[in-house]
């Protein structure tokens, strides 16, 4: 019996059912607590992902933040994920998040070749930067809440 650690993969099954292949893998493994995702052009998605690494704060809102005339940049802590390290920076100017950047990203190339190719693809895919994130339609309030928790990390 394999460990039930969320970073431990169970073998990938590729089933043929009714003429179409169904790929089954353990989502827990690729969720893995990975907190990253970068839009180098300051998109909110990266902010939201950064947000997932800090305690949500409801006491700070963008409008309550004292506007700062000059840009202020905060670097997140380097985050280790099972296959590398990532670190994000967030810049605020005039009270708004103006830029989110990736200042460090590494992925250990070439996982053990014994892993099945599908699993390899899923792991690799999760270690890739991206421009947008698709998810269930969030409300404006949820969006602000997620943004606030990222902003609360700024000095």
């Amino acid at each position: 019996m394999q460990s039930s650690s969320k970073y431990t993969f169970r073998p990938v099954k590729v089933k043929k059912t009714g003429g179409f292949a169904t790929l089954v893998l353990v989502a827990g493994a690729i969720w893995g607590g990975i907190v990253f995702g970068v839009d180098q052009n300051g998109g909110w998605n990266a902010v939201l992902n950064l947000a997932s690494n800090v305690t949500p704060s409801t006491s700070v809102s963008p409008t309550q933040t004292t506007p700062n005339p000059g840009p202020v940049t905060a670097n997140g802590d380097p985050i280790n994920y099972p296959f590398g390290t990532i670190q994000l920076s967030v810049t605020r100017s005039n009270g708004k998040i103006s830029k989110v950047g990736l200042i460090q990203a590494s992925a250990s190339a070439g996982r053990d070749q014994a892993f099945p190719s599908l699993e390899q693809a899923a792991i690799s895919a999760n270690g890739t930067n991206f421009g947008n994130m698709s998810g269930a339609t969030y409300t404006t309030d949820t969006f602000k809440q997620a943004l606030n928790s990222a902003i609360s990390k700024l000095p």
Partner: peptide, 23 residues
């Protein structure tokens, strides 16, 4: 990078567990 679209984990973006499922 804008051709790459992450899929959110099936939790709210405001959730402490929020993040990326795959890309």
């Amino acid at each position: 990078e804008f051709w790459r679209v992450a899929i959110s984990k099936p939790v709210s973006i405001a959730d402490a567990e929020a993040g990326v499922l795959t890309v």
